[in-house]
Design a binder for these strands. Structure first.
Lengths: 225, 225
DNA sequence: CGCTGTGAATTATTTCACAGCA
DNA sequence: TGCTGTGAAATAATTCACAGCG
């Protein structure tokens, strides 16, 4: 949460970092359509942001465009890709093979270039030993050994809420530094570890809030400015 | 995205809204532990924010605390709950019954007070007619009729990316106003409709970015300023 | 006395708007 | 000429710090 290391070289805004994967996805879409060049306006549109914001974001990393022309898609894919992990194949361990875990495990396969599903862990006898997304589910009691073996520094928690904190602690003790939490509970990060949380029902609550408001203030049509 | 209707009464910051469900969850946890009162410091800690921020957030809605004492848990649950939809039982339709769809459908049951899974839709013969989370999956070709029947104003998209935009358009045409998108693609919101997106691999990319940086700048320990 | 509620200051993020290069 | 890269301005969000009430 706290930002350390203003060390030297450009401190990149968190908001910018969060948009990078979106730019990459938009670029890959363009590449598939055999587009070689894009202007900031076009790319921004594809990624759903303002063009000035896109240019500002890219500028934190360098000058990849050509004035009067635009950006070369392939170059940008490579540059941004490197920043978000492409080519590294980060080993990732996932704990909790329920529906959400399965969905994520499957999803990871589409990002083989950046991530590698190193292990799946679960506590249930019914699941241990079965194969999911090409990986055999292991017993989460063996976590320490599995973390040593895989060297994973990124972990995903898709367990029920009550055990999530304990799993998180064990992951971090075992060397995991970044945790993506899908369990509906607020986790406390052990020292040296950062957590990102995704909560499905919270997202729905936010939508409900907005919908309730717009129904209350302007039932049929939001009035214009 | 654009904020219309500054009408009158308090324009609540988007960032505040996004934290509300987290406060509610923390409060419900406290209530289950039979805690009657909390200070802003305690609640903030449970929700993972600064106490001043919590107080500021709550202040947008009114004065619910007692100086020198704190907040009454039950009161706050009720107040915040109402804002995020508790008691309304918003009808929700979900399109795309894959692993992610199943996970969400199941998840929704824990929030019956605020949401009601009104319908599940899918395109595959293999899934249509089966029961998931207590609801029989219907054919997504019948979407128009289903939307009319349920009156849903909130929709969830968990389809493959290629069809997500089309589904989104059809949902919005049929009266849905808020869409939660899990398909890994950027959707364009039809008029009168707002979209919230959750992207699993983007979250991982963000973690990878941070991990790569910290490995590069301070392999063992983040150096201090 | 202790903790809320909130002005004022600070920090973060976005947008404007244009100089400058290809 | 057209579009990038970026100062400067505007806006949004957070934190400080303390007055004021129970």
């Amino acid at each position: 949460m706290t930002n350390r290391v203003p060390t030297f070289g450009a401190q990149i805004p968190e908001a910018t970092i969060a948009r990078l994967p979106g730019y990459l996805r938009a670029l890959q879409g363009l590449a598939e359509s055999s587009v070689d060049r894009v202007s900031s306006t076009e790319l921004a549109e594809a990624a759903g942001v303002q063009s000035a914001l896109l240019r500002r974001d890219l500028s934190y990393f360098g000058s990849y465009g050509t004035r009067g022309v635009g950006y070369e898609v392939a170059l940008l894919v490579k540059e941004i890709g490197e920043h978000v992990g492409n080519g590294v194949r980060w080993p990732v361990v996932l704990v909790g093979v329920g529906n959400m875990g399965r969905a994520l495990a499957t999803h990871l396969r589409s990002h083989r270039d950046a991530f590698h599903l190193a292990a799946l862990l679960d506590a249930s006898e019914d699941v241990i030993g079965t194969e999911v997304a090409g990986v055999v589910v292991e017993d989460q009691r063996d976590m320490d050994e599995i973390l040593r073996r895989t060297g994973a520094r990124i972990g995903i928690i898709t367990t029920p809420a009550p055990v999530a904190q304990e799993i998180c602690d064990r992951l971090c003790t075992g060397g995991v530094r970044r945790v993506l939490n899908f369990a509906p509970t607020t986790l406390t990060a052990p020292a040296g570890c950062t957590i990102r949380a995704v909560d499905l029902s919270q997202e729905l609550h936010i939508l409900a809030f907005h919908e309730a408001r717009s129904l209350a203030s302007g039932p049929v049509e939001e009035s214009m400015s």
